[in-house]
Design a binder for these strands. Structure first.
Lengths: 245, 245
DNA sequence: CGACGTGTTGATCTCTCTCAATTAGAGTGG
DNA sequence: CCACTCTAATTGAGAGAGATCAACACGTCG
Protein backbone atom coordinates (compact mmCIF):
# COMPACT_ATOMS: atom_id res chain seq x y z
CA UNK A 1 0.00 0.00 0.00
CA UNK A 2 2.60 2.47 -1.14
CA UNK A 3 1.85 6.15 -1.05
CA UNK A 4 1.32 8.07 -4.23
CA UNK A 5 3.67 10.85 -5.21
CA UNK A 6 1.99 14.06 -6.27
CA UNK A 7 3.77 13.99 -9.59
CA UNK A 8 2.07 10.74 -10.39
CA UNK A 9 -1.31 11.65 -8.94
CA UNK A 10 -4.08 9.79 -10.72
CA UNK A 11 -6.23 12.85 -10.71
CA UNK A 12 -3.84 15.07 -12.54
CA UNK A 13 -4.40 13.85 -16.08
CA UNK A 14 -8.17 14.18 -15.87
CA UNK A 15 -9.49 16.98 -18.01
CA UNK A 16 -11.00 18.67 -14.97
CA UNK A 17 -7.65 19.47 -13.48
CA UNK A 18 -5.10 22.09 -14.38
CA UNK A 19 -1.60 21.43 -15.54
CA UNK A 20 1.10 22.16 -13.02
CA UNK A 21 4.82 22.57 -13.30
CA UNK A 22 7.33 20.08 -11.95
CA UNK A 23 8.20 22.68 -9.35
CA UNK A 24 4.64 22.91 -8.14
CA UNK A 25 4.40 19.17 -7.74
CA UNK A 26 7.52 19.21 -5.67
CA UNK A 27 6.08 21.94 -3.50
CA UNK A 28 2.82 20.13 -2.89
CA UNK A 29 4.72 16.90 -2.33
CA UNK A 30 6.83 18.60 0.32
CA UNK A 31 3.73 19.80 2.14
CA UNK A 32 1.95 16.48 2.03
CA UNK A 33 2.27 14.64 5.30
CA UNK A 34 0.73 11.28 4.60
CA UNK A 35 -2.33 9.46 3.35
CA UNK A 36 -5.27 7.96 5.18
CA UNK A 37 -7.48 5.25 3.89
CA UNK A 38 -10.89 4.90 5.50
CA UNK A 39 -13.66 2.39 4.98
CA UNK A 40 -17.16 3.47 3.99
CA UNK A 41 -19.14 5.27 6.68
CA UNK A 42 -16.09 6.38 8.64
CA UNK A 43 -15.78 9.77 10.25
CA UNK A 44 -12.91 11.81 8.86
CA UNK A 45 -13.68 14.97 10.79
CA UNK A 46 -15.99 15.26 13.76
CA UNK A 47 -18.33 18.19 13.95
CA UNK A 48 -16.68 20.63 16.30
CA UNK A 49 -13.29 18.95 16.13
CA UNK A 50 -10.70 21.57 16.88
CA UNK A 51 -7.44 20.68 15.23
CA UNK A 52 -8.42 19.05 11.99
CA UNK A 53 -5.71 19.07 9.36
CA UNK A 54 -6.25 19.91 5.74
CA UNK A 55 -7.24 17.12 3.39
CA UNK A 56 -7.60 16.40 -0.23
CA UNK A 57 -9.90 13.64 -1.35
CA UNK A 58 -7.88 11.35 -3.58
CA UNK A 59 -10.43 8.65 -4.31
CA UNK A 60 -13.87 7.66 -3.15
CA UNK A 61 -16.86 9.69 -1.98
CA UNK A 62 -17.56 11.60 1.20
CA UNK A 63 -19.82 14.36 2.43
CA UNK A 64 -19.77 17.40 4.70
CA UNK A 65 -22.64 17.82 7.15
CA UNK A 66 -23.96 19.68 10.16
CA UNK A 67 -26.44 18.50 12.75
CA UNK A 68 -28.76 20.07 15.29
CA UNK A 69 -28.63 18.93 18.86
CA UNK A 70 -31.71 16.75 18.48
CA UNK A 71 -30.09 14.85 15.66
CA UNK A 72 -31.56 16.47 12.59
CA UNK A 73 -28.83 16.36 9.98
CA UNK A 74 -28.17 18.42 6.88
CA UNK A 75 -25.62 17.30 4.33
CA UNK A 76 -23.94 20.43 3.00
CA UNK A 77 -22.14 18.97 0.03
CA UNK A 78 -20.88 15.77 -1.44
CA UNK A 79 -17.17 15.36 -1.99
CA UNK A 80 -15.57 13.54 -4.89
CA UNK A 81 -12.03 12.96 -6.06
CA UNK A 82 -10.00 16.16 -6.16
CA UNK A 83 -12.04 18.07 -3.60
CA UNK A 84 -10.49 20.07 -0.79
CA UNK A 85 -11.52 19.55 2.78
CA UNK A 86 -11.12 21.83 5.73
CA UNK A 87 -10.17 25.15 4.19
CA UNK A 88 -13.12 26.74 5.97
CA UNK A 89 -11.86 26.75 9.46
CA UNK A 90 -9.37 29.23 10.74
CA UNK A 91 -6.34 27.71 12.36
CA UNK A 92 -7.09 26.51 15.83
CA UNK A 93 -10.77 26.94 15.23
CA UNK A 94 -13.43 24.34 15.71
CA UNK A 95 -14.63 22.70 12.55
CA UNK A 96 -18.05 23.96 11.65
CA UNK A 97 -18.98 20.73 9.96
CA UNK A 98 -18.21 17.05 10.03
CA UNK A 99 -17.00 14.87 7.18
CA UNK A 100 -17.94 11.22 6.68
CA UNK A 101 -17.01 8.81 3.91
CA UNK A 102 -19.59 7.19 1.67
CA UNK A 103 -17.24 4.63 0.19
CA UNK A 104 -13.80 3.44 0.98
CA UNK A 105 -11.74 6.55 0.42
CA UNK A 106 -8.18 7.78 0.37
CA UNK A 107 -7.24 11.23 1.59
CA UNK A 108 -3.98 13.15 1.31
CA UNK A 109 -3.19 14.87 4.58
CA UNK A 110 -1.60 18.30 4.90
CA UNK A 111 -0.65 20.34 7.87
CA UNK A 112 -2.99 23.17 8.55
CA UNK A 113 -0.40 25.86 7.86
CA UNK A 114 0.43 24.33 4.49
CA UNK A 115 -2.30 26.52 3.15
CA UNK A 116 -0.23 29.55 3.99
CA UNK A 117 2.98 27.97 2.72
CA UNK A 118 1.36 27.22 -0.56
CA UNK A 119 0.20 30.79 -0.97
CA UNK A 120 3.59 32.10 -0.06
CA UNK A 121 5.60 29.84 -2.30
CA UNK A 122 3.25 29.67 -5.23
CA UNK A 123 0.84 32.55 -5.62
CA UNK A 124 -0.51 30.87 -8.69
CA UNK A 125 -1.56 27.79 -6.77
CA UNK A 126 -2.80 30.01 -3.99
CA UNK A 127 -4.96 31.80 -6.47
CA UNK A 128 -6.24 28.47 -7.61
CA UNK A 129 -7.23 27.52 -4.15
CA UNK A 130 -9.28 30.61 -3.62
CA UNK A 131 -10.94 29.84 -6.86
CA UNK A 132 -11.65 26.28 -5.83
CA UNK A 133 -13.03 27.48 -2.54
CA UNK A 134 -15.28 29.92 -4.30
CA UNK A 135 -16.42 27.19 -6.63
CA UNK A 136 -17.23 24.92 -3.74
CA UNK A 137 -19.35 27.72 -2.38
CA UNK A 138 -21.27 27.97 -5.59
CA UNK A 139 -22.19 24.30 -5.22
CA UNK A 140 -23.64 25.06 -1.83
CA UNK A 141 -25.48 28.02 -3.35
CA UNK A 142 -27.11 25.66 -5.83
CA UNK A 143 -28.19 23.33 -3.08
CA UNK A 144 -29.57 26.22 -1.08
CA UNK A 145 -31.69 27.27 -4.01
CA UNK A 146 -33.00 23.73 -4.29
CA UNK A 147 -33.73 23.26 -0.64
CA UNK A 148 -35.23 26.70 -0.25
CA UNK A 149 -37.34 26.93 -3.36
CA UNK A 150 -37.67 23.67 -5.24
CA UNK A 151 -40.32 21.00 -4.66
CA UNK A 152 -39.27 17.50 -3.67
CA UNK A 153 -39.44 16.24 -7.25
CA UNK A 154 -37.44 19.16 -8.52
CA UNK A 155 -34.80 18.79 -5.84
CA UNK A 156 -34.28 15.15 -6.55
CA UNK A 157 -34.06 15.71 -10.29
CA UNK A 158 -31.48 18.41 -9.64
CA UNK A 159 -29.40 16.25 -7.35
CA UNK A 160 -29.39 13.31 -9.73
CA UNK A 161 -28.22 15.46 -12.60
CA UNK A 162 -25.53 17.22 -10.62
CA UNK A 163 -24.08 14.15 -8.97
CA UNK A 164 -24.25 12.17 -12.16
CA UNK A 165 -22.30 14.85 -13.98
CA UNK A 166 -19.62 15.06 -11.33
CA UNK A 167 -19.22 11.33 -11.06
CA UNK A 168 -19.25 10.83 -14.81
CA UNK A 169 -16.51 13.43 -15.26
CA UNK A 170 -14.19 11.34 -13.14
CA UNK A 171 -14.75 8.13 -15.00
CA UNK A 172 -13.33 7.07 -18.32
CA UNK A 173 -16.48 6.44 -20.32
CA UNK A 174 -18.14 9.62 -19.15
CA UNK A 175 -21.10 7.85 -17.62
CA UNK A 176 -22.21 5.78 -20.59
CA UNK A 177 -22.42 2.72 -18.35
CA UNK A 178 -24.00 4.65 -15.51
CA UNK A 179 -21.99 5.76 -12.52
CA UNK A 180 -21.31 4.13 -9.19
CA UNK A 181 -23.74 5.75 -6.79
CA UNK A 182 -23.00 5.07 -3.16
CA UNK A 183 -25.66 7.25 -1.49
CA UNK A 184 -28.47 5.68 0.45
CA UNK A 185 -31.87 7.32 0.31
CA UNK A 186 -31.16 8.69 3.76
CA UNK A 187 -28.19 10.59 2.36
CA UNK A 188 -30.29 12.01 -0.43
CA UNK A 189 -32.92 13.05 2.08
CA UNK A 190 -30.35 14.71 4.31
CA UNK A 191 -28.81 16.48 1.36
CA UNK A 192 -32.12 17.90 0.19
CA UNK A 193 -33.85 18.69 3.45
CA UNK A 194 -36.48 16.00 2.94
CA UNK A 195 -37.69 13.11 5.05
CA UNK A 196 -36.56 9.62 4.23
CA UNK A 197 -40.04 8.41 3.40
CA UNK A 198 -40.87 11.25 1.09
CA UNK A 199 -37.53 10.88 -0.62
CA UNK A 200 -38.27 7.26 -1.29
CA UNK A 201 -41.70 7.96 -2.70
CA UNK A 202 -40.47 10.74 -4.92
CA UNK A 203 -37.53 8.71 -6.15
CA UNK A 204 -39.81 5.82 -7.05
CA UNK A 205 -42.19 8.14 -8.83
CA UNK A 206 -39.41 9.50 -11.03
CA UNK A 207 -38.02 6.05 -11.64
CA UNK A 208 -41.43 4.69 -12.64
CA UNK A 209 -41.77 7.62 -14.98
CA UNK A 210 -38.59 6.42 -16.64
CA UNK A 211 -36.40 9.38 -15.81
CA UNK A 212 -33.63 7.42 -14.17
CA UNK A 213 -32.84 3.96 -12.93
CA UNK A 214 -30.89 2.40 -10.09
CA UNK A 215 -29.32 -1.00 -10.39
CA UNK A 216 -26.70 -2.67 -8.28
CA UNK A 217 -25.46 0.55 -6.82
CA UNK A 218 -25.19 2.30 -10.15
CA UNK A 219 -27.21 5.23 -11.39
CA UNK A 220 -28.37 5.33 -14.99
CA UNK A 221 -29.89 8.42 -16.52
CA UNK A 222 -32.81 7.48 -18.71
CA UNK A 223 -34.17 10.89 -19.64
CA UNK A 224 -31.81 13.68 -18.83
CA UNK A 225 -33.86 16.13 -20.79
CA UNK A 226 -36.93 15.52 -18.67
CA UNK A 227 -34.92 15.63 -15.48
CA UNK A 228 -33.29 18.89 -16.48
CA UNK A 229 -36.64 20.37 -17.29
CA UNK A 230 -38.08 19.22 -13.99
CA UNK A 231 -35.14 20.72 -12.14
CA UNK A 232 -35.45 23.99 -14.06
CA UNK A 233 -31.76 23.47 -14.64
CA UNK A 234 -31.42 26.02 -17.37
CA UNK A 235 -34.18 28.14 -16.03
CA UNK A 236 -32.58 29.38 -12.91
CA UNK A 237 -31.47 32.88 -13.33
CA UNK A 238 -31.45 34.97 -16.46
CA UNK A 239 -35.13 34.87 -17.30
CA UNK A 240 -34.47 36.18 -20.75
CA UNK A 241 -30.84 35.96 -21.62
CA UNK A 242 -30.32 32.66 -23.32
CA UNK A 243 -32.30 30.10 -25.20
CA UNK A 244 -33.56 27.51 -22.75
CA UNK A 245 -31.68 24.64 -24.30
CA UNK B 1 -18.53 63.05 -3.32
CA UNK B 2 -14.83 62.43 -3.12
CA UNK B 3 -13.54 58.89 -3.29
CA UNK B 4 -12.05 57.28 -0.25
CA UNK B 5 -8.46 56.19 -0.27
CA UNK B 6 -7.83 52.67 0.98
CA UNK B 7 -5.44 53.92 3.61
CA UNK B 8 -8.26 55.89 5.16
CA UNK B 9 -10.93 53.26 4.68
CA UNK B 10 -13.59 53.55 7.36
CA UNK B 11 -13.74 49.83 7.73
CA UNK B 12 -10.12 49.34 8.57
CA UNK B 13 -10.16 50.42 12.22
CA UNK B 14 -13.10 48.18 13.11
CA UNK B 15 -12.08 45.28 15.29
CA UNK B 16 -13.31 42.80 12.70
CA UNK B 17 -10.65 43.70 10.22
CA UNK B 18 -6.99 42.85 10.12
CA UNK B 19 -4.17 45.31 10.23
CA UNK B 20 -2.38 45.86 6.98
CA UNK B 21 0.91 47.47 6.09
CA UNK B 22 1.22 50.75 4.30
CA UNK B 23 2.47 48.78 1.34
CA UNK B 24 -0.62 46.64 1.22
CA UNK B 25 -2.86 49.68 1.22
CA UNK B 26 -0.93 51.07 -1.67
CA UNK B 27 -1.33 47.81 -3.54
CA UNK B 28 -5.05 47.63 -3.00
CA UNK B 29 -5.36 51.29 -3.84
CA UNK B 30 -3.56 50.72 -7.11
CA UNK B 31 -5.96 47.94 -8.03
CA UNK B 32 -9.08 49.87 -7.12
CA UNK B 33 -10.73 51.32 -10.18
CA UNK B 34 -13.49 53.46 -8.78
CA UNK B 35 -16.52 53.54 -6.53
CA UNK B 36 -20.19 53.14 -7.27
CA UNK B 37 -22.96 54.44 -5.14
CA UNK B 38 -26.38 52.84 -5.63
CA UNK B 39 -29.73 53.61 -4.10
CA UNK B 40 -31.71 50.96 -2.22
CA UNK B 41 -33.16 48.19 -4.33
CA UNK B 42 -30.73 48.65 -7.20
CA UNK B 43 -29.21 45.78 -9.12
CA UNK B 44 -25.44 45.63 -8.82
CA UNK B 45 -25.02 42.36 -10.71
CA UNK B 46 -27.63 40.69 -12.85
CA UNK B 47 -28.07 36.97 -12.61
CA UNK B 48 -26.15 35.54 -15.52
CA UNK B 49 -24.24 38.72 -16.23
CA UNK B 50 -21.03 37.75 -17.94
CA UNK B 51 -18.39 40.35 -17.26
CA UNK B 52 -19.08 41.49 -13.73
CA UNK B 53 -16.09 43.10 -12.05
CA UNK B 54 -15.00 42.42 -8.52
CA UNK B 55 -16.55 44.48 -5.74
CA UNK B 56 -16.12 45.21 -2.13
CA UNK B 57 -19.07 46.50 -0.15
CA UNK B 58 -17.95 49.66 1.55
CA UNK B 59 -21.17 50.74 3.24
CA UNK B 60 -24.81 49.72 3.23
CA UNK B 61 -26.51 46.35 2.85
CA UNK B 62 -27.04 44.08 -0.14
CA UNK B 63 -27.80 40.45 -0.88
CA UNK B 64 -26.88 37.68 -3.29
CA UNK B 65 -29.69 35.66 -4.81
CA UNK B 66 -30.70 33.12 -7.42
CA UNK B 67 -34.07 32.64 -9.05
CA UNK B 68 -35.91 29.90 -10.90
CA UNK B 69 -37.46 30.64 -14.24
CA UNK B 70 -40.93 30.96 -12.76
CA UNK B 71 -39.77 33.66 -10.40
CA UNK B 72 -39.18 31.77 -7.18
CA UNK B 73 -36.25 33.46 -5.52
CA UNK B 74 -33.75 32.31 -2.96
CA UNK B 75 -31.52 34.79 -1.18
CA UNK B 76 -28.16 33.11 -0.69
CA UNK B 77 -26.58 35.54 1.73
CA UNK B 78 -26.77 39.04 3.02
CA UNK B 79 -23.83 41.36 2.47
CA UNK B 80 -22.62 43.98 4.90
CA UNK B 81 -19.72 46.40 5.02
CA UNK B 82 -16.43 44.71 4.23
CA UNK B 83 -17.84 41.81 2.26
CA UNK B 84 -16.40 40.65 -1.04
CA UNK B 85 -18.55 40.25 -4.09
CA UNK B 86 -17.93 38.27 -7.21
CA UNK B 87 -15.01 36.05 -6.32
CA UNK B 88 -17.12 33.03 -7.23
CA UNK B 89 -17.12 33.38 -10.94
CA UNK B 90 -14.21 32.44 -13.10
CA UNK B 91 -13.00 35.12 -15.40
CA UNK B 92 -15.24 35.47 -18.39
CA UNK B 93 -17.82 33.28 -16.76
CA UNK B 94 -21.45 34.09 -16.24
CA UNK B 95 -22.32 35.14 -12.74
CA UNK B 96 -24.18 32.39 -10.99
CA UNK B 97 -26.08 34.80 -8.81
CA UNK B 98 -27.38 38.34 -8.81
CA UNK B 99 -26.67 41.06 -6.27
CA UNK B 100 -29.15 43.72 -5.20
CA UNK B 101 -28.82 46.50 -2.65
CA UNK B 102 -31.07 46.75 0.39
CA UNK B 103 -30.05 50.27 1.31
CA UNK B 104 -28.13 52.98 -0.37
CA UNK B 105 -24.70 51.45 -0.70
CA UNK B 106 -21.18 52.22 -1.82
CA UNK B 107 -19.02 49.65 -3.55
CA UNK B 108 -15.35 49.72 -4.40
CA UNK B 109 -14.78 48.40 -7.89
CA UNK B 110 -11.84 46.25 -8.95
CA UNK B 111 -10.90 44.73 -12.23
CA UNK B 112 -11.53 41.04 -12.42
CA UNK B 113 -7.86 40.18 -12.76
CA UNK B 114 -7.00 42.17 -9.66
CA UNK B 115 -7.65 39.02 -7.76
CA UNK B 116 -4.68 37.43 -9.43
CA UNK B 117 -2.55 40.55 -9.05
CA UNK B 118 -3.28 40.63 -5.37
CA UNK B 119 -2.25 37.04 -4.96
CA UNK B 120 0.89 37.59 -6.95
CA UNK B 121 2.01 40.73 -5.21
CA UNK B 122 0.89 39.92 -1.71
CA UNK B 123 0.54 36.25 -0.87
CA UNK B 124 -0.50 37.26 2.59
CA UNK B 125 -3.50 39.17 1.33
CA UNK B 126 -4.17 36.40 -1.13
CA UNK B 127 -4.25 33.97 1.73
CA UNK B 128 -6.65 36.24 3.49
CA UNK B 129 -8.97 36.25 0.56
CA UNK B 130 -9.17 32.51 0.41
CA UNK B 131 -9.96 32.58 4.06
CA UNK B 132 -12.66 35.18 3.57
CA UNK B 133 -14.12 33.17 0.76
CA UNK B 134 -14.15 30.07 2.90
CA UNK B 135 -15.78 32.03 5.68
CA UNK B 136 -18.46 33.30 3.37
CA UNK B 137 -19.13 29.70 2.45
CA UNK B 138 -19.59 28.78 6.06
CA UNK B 139 -22.33 31.40 6.29
CA UNK B 140 -24.11 29.73 3.43
CA UNK B 141 -23.60 26.39 5.18
CA UNK B 142 -25.39 27.77 8.20
CA UNK B 143 -28.28 28.98 6.12
CA UNK B 144 -28.50 25.64 4.38
CA UNK B 145 -28.78 23.89 7.72
CA UNK B 146 -31.58 26.27 8.67
CA UNK B 147 -33.51 25.99 5.46
CA UNK B 148 -33.06 22.25 5.24
CA UNK B 149 -33.70 21.24 8.80
CA UNK B 150 -35.08 24.00 11.01
CA UNK B 151 -38.75 24.89 11.46
CA UNK B 152 -40.02 28.32 10.49
CA UNK B 153 -39.73 29.62 14.05
CA UNK B 154 -36.24 28.26 14.40
CA UNK B 155 -35.12 29.69 11.09
CA UNK B 156 -36.34 33.14 11.92
CA UNK B 157 -34.77 33.10 15.36
CA UNK B 158 -31.51 32.08 13.74
CA UNK B 159 -31.63 34.78 11.12
CA UNK B 160 -32.43 37.50 13.62
CA UNK B 161 -29.53 36.52 15.83
CA UNK B 162 -27.04 36.22 13.00
CA UNK B 163 -27.95 39.43 11.26
CA UNK B 164 -28.16 41.31 14.51
CA UNK B 165 -24.68 40.19 15.43
CA UNK B 166 -23.19 41.15 12.11
CA UNK B 167 -24.87 44.53 12.04
CA UNK B 168 -24.04 45.26 15.66
CA UNK B 169 -20.37 44.49 15.06
CA UNK B 170 -20.21 47.28 12.52
CA UNK B 171 -21.78 49.91 14.71
CA UNK B 172 -20.19 51.85 17.52
CA UNK B 173 -22.45 50.94 20.43
CA UNK B 174 -22.48 47.27 19.52
CA UNK B 175 -26.25 47.13 19.12
CA UNK B 176 -27.32 48.60 22.47
CA UNK B 177 -29.74 50.87 20.64
CA UNK B 178 -30.83 48.17 18.25
CA UNK B 179 -29.54 47.98 14.71
CA UNK B 180 -30.83 49.44 11.48
CA UNK B 181 -32.65 46.59 9.77
CA UNK B 182 -33.48 47.22 6.15
CA UNK B 183 -34.98 43.85 5.19
CA UNK B 184 -38.63 43.59 4.30
CA UNK B 185 -40.49 40.46 5.30
CA UNK B 186 -40.25 39.36 1.72
CA UNK B 187 -36.46 39.38 2.01
CA UNK B 188 -36.58 37.34 5.16
CA UNK B 189 -38.92 34.88 3.47
CA UNK B 190 -36.65 34.59 0.45
CA UNK B 191 -33.64 34.13 2.67
CA UNK B 192 -35.22 31.33 4.63
CA UNK B 193 -37.16 29.49 1.98
CA UNK B 194 -40.53 30.47 3.47
CA UNK B 195 -43.62 32.11 2.07
CA UNK B 196 -44.25 35.75 2.80
CA UNK B 197 -47.43 35.07 4.73
CA UNK B 198 -45.95 32.43 6.93
CA UNK B 199 -42.94 34.60 7.59
CA UNK B 200 -45.21 37.38 8.76
CA UNK B 201 -47.18 35.13 11.05
CA UNK B 202 -44.10 33.60 12.58
CA UNK B 203 -42.40 36.94 13.04
CA UNK B 204 -45.46 38.30 14.82
CA UNK B 205 -45.64 35.27 17.04
CA UNK B 206 -42.06 35.72 18.19
CA UNK B 207 -42.53 39.43 18.63
CA UNK B 208 -45.67 38.93 20.71
CA UNK B 209 -43.75 36.45 22.80
CA UNK B 210 -41.32 39.27 23.53
CA UNK B 211 -38.27 37.79 21.84
CA UNK B 212 -37.55 40.73 19.61
CA UNK B 213 -39.06 43.99 18.50
CA UNK B 214 -39.13 46.07 15.32
CA UNK B 215 -39.55 49.81 15.41
CA UNK B 216 -38.92 52.39 12.74
CA UNK B 217 -36.70 50.14 10.72
CA UNK B 218 -34.60 49.10 13.70
CA UNK B 219 -34.33 45.66 15.24
CA UNK B 220 -34.16 45.30 19.00
CA UNK B 221 -33.32 42.01 20.65
CA UNK B 222 -35.51 41.50 23.69
CA UNK B 223 -34.56 37.98 24.69
CA UNK B 224 -31.46 36.73 22.97
CA UNK B 225 -31.28 33.75 25.26
CA UNK B 226 -34.68 32.52 24.21
CA UNK B 227 -33.96 33.18 20.57
CA UNK B 228 -30.67 31.32 20.74
CA UNK B 229 -32.35 28.40 22.39
CA UNK B 230 -35.08 28.35 19.79
CA UNK B 231 -32.50 28.42 17.03
CA UNK B 232 -30.49 25.65 18.66
CA UNK B 233 -27.62 28.04 18.13
CA UNK B 234 -25.21 26.30 20.42
CA UNK B 235 -26.65 22.91 19.78
CA UNK B 236 -25.61 22.43 16.24
CA UNK B 237 -22.65 20.22 15.92
CA UNK B 238 -20.54 18.35 18.40
CA UNK B 239 -23.00 15.76 19.57
CA UNK B 240 -20.25 14.08 21.54
CA UNK B 241 -19.39 17.10 23.58
CA UNK B 242 -22.59 17.21 25.47
CA UNK B 243 -25.19 14.71 26.57
CA UNK B 244 -27.85 14.24 23.92
CA UNK B 245 -30.64 15.44 26.16
C1' DC C 1 -56.77 61.13 -4.68
C1' DG C 2 -55.72 56.69 -6.64
C1' DA C 3 -51.75 53.55 -7.17
C1' DC C 4 -48.42 51.00 -4.93
C1' DG C 5 -45.51 48.71 -1.55
C1' DT C 6 -45.47 46.63 2.94
C1' DG C 7 -47.47 44.55 6.85
C1' DT C 8 -51.39 41.84 8.93
C1' DT C 9 -54.84 38.33 9.54
C1' DG C 10 -58.28 34.66 8.51
C1' DA C 11 -59.61 30.57 5.80
C1' DT C 12 -58.56 26.80 3.13
C1' DC C 13 -55.51 23.54 0.83
C1' DT C 14 -51.66 20.47 0.01
C1' DC C 15 -47.17 18.93 0.11
C1' DT C 16 -44.37 16.75 3.06
C1' DC C 17 -43.75 14.66 7.65
C1' DT C 18 -44.53 11.11 11.05
C1' DC C 19 -46.04 6.68 12.37
C1' DA C 20 -46.41 1.84 11.20
C1' DA C 21 -45.66 -2.31 8.93
C1' DT C 22 -43.57 -5.30 5.35
C1' DT C 23 -39.96 -7.07 2.24
C1' DA C 24 -35.43 -8.19 0.83
C1' DG C 25 -30.55 -8.94 1.27
C1' DA C 26 -26.23 -9.46 3.97
C1' DG C 27 -23.97 -11.09 7.82
C1' DT C 28 -23.58 -13.99 12.12
C1' DG C 29 -23.75 -17.70 15.06
C1' DG C 30 -25.38 -22.16 16.38
C1' DC D 1 -28.47 -25.09 6.70
C1' DC D 2 -31.40 -22.39 9.44
C1' DA D 3 -32.80 -18.98 12.71
C1' DC D 4 -31.77 -14.21 14.00
C1' DT D 5 -30.37 -9.53 13.40
C1' DC D 6 -29.49 -5.26 10.87
C1' DT D 7 -29.73 -2.10 7.31
C1' DA D 8 -32.02 -0.20 3.28
C1' DA D 9 -35.96 0.14 0.49
C1' DT D 10 -41.14 0.28 0.17
C1' DT D 11 -45.85 1.42 0.83
C1' DG D 12 -50.13 2.95 3.22
C1' DA D 13 -52.59 6.12 6.37
C1' DG D 14 -53.22 10.03 9.00
C1' DA D 15 -51.45 14.54 10.74
C1' DG D 16 -49.56 19.02 10.32
C1' DA D 17 -46.47 22.79 9.13
C1' DG D 18 -46.42 25.85 5.88
C1' DA D 19 -48.36 27.38 1.18
C1' DT D 20 -51.91 29.75 -1.28
C1' DC D 21 -55.91 32.69 -1.68
C1' DA D 22 -58.30 36.84 -0.14
C1' DA D 23 -59.06 41.16 2.28
C1' DC D 24 -57.84 45.01 4.58
C1' DA D 25 -54.93 48.71 6.92
C1' DC D 26 -51.52 52.26 6.41
C1' DG D 27 -48.10 55.33 4.61
C1' DT D 28 -45.78 57.34 0.61
C1' DC D 29 -45.83 59.42 -3.64
C1' DG D 30 -46.80 61.34 -8.21
Amino acid sequence: MREVRCSECQLRPKPLFLEHSEQEHTLVQSLKRREVRLEAGAILIHEGQTDAPLYTLYSGWAFRYKTLSDGRRQILSFLLGGDFIGVQQKMGDASAHGVITLTEAVFCVFQRDSLWELHRQSPSMGFNITWLTAHEESLVDDTLLSVGRRSAEERIAMLLILLFKRAAALQADGGASGVAFPLTQQHIADGLGLSLVHTNKTLRKLERRGLHHFEEGRLYMRDVRALAQLADLYGDGRPAQRPLV
